[in-house]
Amino acid sequence: MAVAVNTGISSKDRGAIVAGLNKVLADAYAVYLKTHGYHWNVRGPNFQSLHVLLEGQYTEQWAALDTIAERIRALGELAPQGYGAFGNLSSIKDGDPEQDSDGMLTDLLKDNETLIATLRAAFPATEAGGDEATADLLTQRLQAHEKHAWMLRATLGVK
């Protein structure tokens, strides 16, 4: 039995909101995967502190993925899944484990900034649809990735 979603957001607005969330989820998943991979492969004299820094970031990111996907489901759509679907939606490229630690951190900084732009780009649809719940989720993720970017920038010794 099909029951229409009736949460006060039109079908058209929900579609636009979900399109933005799908891209957010794909970029967030790609940043999570790269952060976790660099956690495994980082090397050098600052190994321990970088290993711990990246573990804190990927752990926080992992928990958020479920929240984003569940918001998509609450809006009545299926969340994308699988590497192919995420690859088609994401603008984040795979990491290179051969890089030195500064290269890895610079790569993650750039990717967090890309994800920040993706998050910002999703706001207009939430505003147009009057979707305060999704706007709140985007705000929380924006704060988290701005903090991740700041910590990476500070670790690299740049302003």
Rank of each mutant, 00 (worst) to 15 (best):
G15M: 03
A16V: 00
V18L: 06
V18G: 09
V18K: 08
A19T: 13
G20S: 05
L21S: 08
N22F: 01
L25A: 15
A26V: 02
A26G: 09
A28G: 13
A28N: 07
A28Y: 07
A30P: 00
A30Q: 04
V31D: 11
Y32W: 14
L33G: 00
H36Q: 14
G37Q: 11
H39E: 08
H39S: 10
H39T: 10
W40L: 09
W40G: 06
W40E: 03
N41V: 00
N41A: 13
N41K: 08
N41C: 02
V42A: 10
G44W: 10
P45E: 10
P45N: 10
N46V: 14
Q48D: 13
Q48W: 11
Q48T: 15
Q48S: 15
S49G: 09
S49F: 02
L50K: 04
L50Y: 07
L50C: 01
V52R: 03
V52P: 00
L54C: 05
E55P: 04
G56T: 02
G56W: 04
Q57Y: 02
Q57W: 03
E60G: 10
E60W: 00
A63M: 05
A64H: 08
A64D: 15
L65H: 11
I68E: 05
A69F: 08
A69W: 05
R71G: 01
R71S: 04
R71L: 01
R71Q: 11
R73L: 09
A74R: 14
A74N: 13
L75D: 02
G76A: 10
G76T: 12
G76R: 05
G76E: 09
G76I: 12
E77R: 14
L78T: 13
A79K: 07
A79W: 01
A79E: 03
A79V: 03
P80G: 06
P80Q: 04
